[in-house]
Simulated assay, not measured.
Amino acid sequence: MTKHSFSRKRNGFTLIEVMITVAIVAILASIAYPSYGRYIIRAKRSAAQAQMMDIANRQQQFLLANRIYADKTTLTASGYSLPAEVAANYGYTITLSDPTAPPAFLLTFSPTGNQQADGDLTLDHTGAKTPADKW
């Protein structure tokens, strides 16, 4: 009586094993990618907020020295520019109060590209920030 062996020597992965692995990776990627996208948007917003605070500090220094706030042209002429990573995602404007009123400014950062879902970020001379839920 001869013994017949029905077991085969395995030389690799079966098609079913590969397909299961691909399906698992696809499921994990579909969960992880949107979270990563939101993380990137929050990180870019955080960098913009840091620049807004830097501009507000510069505005306070300018006010102490000149008794008025600086407009965007004056800030640019004094050597200030947005870092490239912020400038790629946000543009900014500085709105000054009427010259006959007490000095005031409103700093607005407007998002571009993927950041647009975020909406504008504003900061005024009193430190009020909008929208509050984005700060």
Rank of each mutant, 00 (worst) to 15 (best):
R45E: 12
A101M: 12
P103C: 10
A65M: 09
V25D: 01
K72T: 07
I27M: 13
N89Q: 12
Y36N: 05
D98K: 11
T14S: 15
S81A: 14
Q59C: 05
T21Y: 06
L64P: 00
F109G: 02
Y33R: 03
G113R: 05
Q115A: 11
L96Q: 05
G12K: 02
R42H: 11
Y90H: 03
M19V: 13
R38W: 01
N11V: 11
K44C: 04
I16V: 15
S78P: 04
R45I: 06
D54Y: 10
L75M: 15
R38Y: 10
F105V: 08
D54I: 10
A84P: 02
F105I: 04
G113H: 06
T73M: 08
D54K: 13
N89P: 00
L63M: 14
N114H: 04
Q59H: 09
R58C: 04
Y90V: 07
D98R: 09
I20F: 10
E85P: 05
Q49I: 14
D98C: 01
E17R: 07
L75Q: 11
D54Q: 13
N66C: 02
S110A: 14
T74N: 01
I27R: 00
P83M: 06
A87Y: 06
G37L: 15
I41D: 07
N114G: 13
I40G: 03
V18R: 09
I20Q: 00
